[in-house]
């Protein structure tokens, strides 16, 4: 019999067979994220005269299940910028913690200078590109809203591949198909956006959220909306979609009781 310490308390090999330790080894190559699990849907944003309006609903879906209904997908950074996250929620939380530690490190210096939205967007897109290049992506589409180095409105997108672009209006996911055309109606170019008032921008974004709720099955009517100007961030996290009309519903043919 084996009296060595590593055998103490173990079932006897001659009676029970050798211990099957195969589960301890993770065979094969390292596994990385292959798909998002708990997800957030669209984020929409629009530049206006003095800043940016950005919105996203408060839902996190687990496949087609509306799993979490109180999820804040707009995240503040240093009271100067807002990042709106679409895609995987756990990756969003990771990035949020990353930004939090970045903010703390910024505070170490006494100058008080914090990164502006443009800097933040560059940082995030490099993180995302690095992770996609390691075949270990952070599964998000995100919009960064705030002001640039010259205190002009700034809005840009970055995604899990590290692709980046900027435009007077932006929308991720379904929003790119449903909301972006509406936003481009009010702000076809930078010049038009620079003439929009806050009220006009808010109205366009809220209307977009409504359209998305009508047509995106992974959306909900509770949402967060933020306005970023040089005076700071006005973030509301428990907004309710209002004045919806379902009058169009009985006009829709092809499903339900009216087949033709």
């Amino acid at each position: 019999m084996n009296h060595l310490p590593q055998a103490w308390g173990r079932p006897r090999d001659d009676v029970y067979g050798a211990y099957d330790s195969s589960y301890l080894q993770n065979g094969g190559p390292t596994q990385h994220t292959q798909r998002p699990i708990v997800t957030g849907t669209s984020v929409v944003a629009l530049k206006f005269k003095d800043g940016v309006v950005i919105a996203a609903d408060n839902l996190a879906s687990y496949g087609s299940l509306a799993r979490f209904t109180d999820v804040k997908r707009l995240r503040k950074f240093a009271e100067t910028s807002v990042v709106g996250f679409g895609g995987d929620v756990s990756d969003m939380q990771y990035l949020d913690r990353l930004l939090n530690s970045l903010d703390i490190q910024e505070a170490y210096g006494s100058s008080g200078h914090t990164l502006n939205a443009q800097n933040l967007h560059t940082y995030l897109s490099k993180v995302l590109y690095k992770r996609r290049s390691d075949f270990n992506p952070l599964w998000n589409q995100l919009l960064v809203a705030g002001l640039d180095g010259e205190s002009k409105p700034f809005l840009a997108a970055a995604d899990l591949l590290g692709t980046t672009f900027s435009s007077p209006s932006l929308a991720t996911g379904y929003g790119a198909h449903l909301a972006q055309p509406l936003l481009r109606n009010v702000a076809p170019d930078e010049e038009a956006a620079s003439k929009l008032s806050l009220e006009q921008a808010l109205e366009a974004v809220k209307e977009s959220m409504k359209v998305l709720f009508y047509r995106d099955a992974r959306s909900m009517d509770k949402y967060s909306i933020a306005v970023i100007t040089k005076d700071g961030i006005d973030l509301k996290e428990n907004e309710q979609l209002e004045k919806q009309s379902w009058a169009f519903a009985d006009q829709i043919r092809g499903y339900g009781t009216q087949v033709n």
Binding site: T163, F165, S166, S167, A176, Q180, D189
Partner: peptide
Amino acid sequence: RSTSGYSINSRYS
């Protein structure tokens, strides 16, 4: 122009 599928990401990229 910058595109993703049929969508236009940005008109100035």
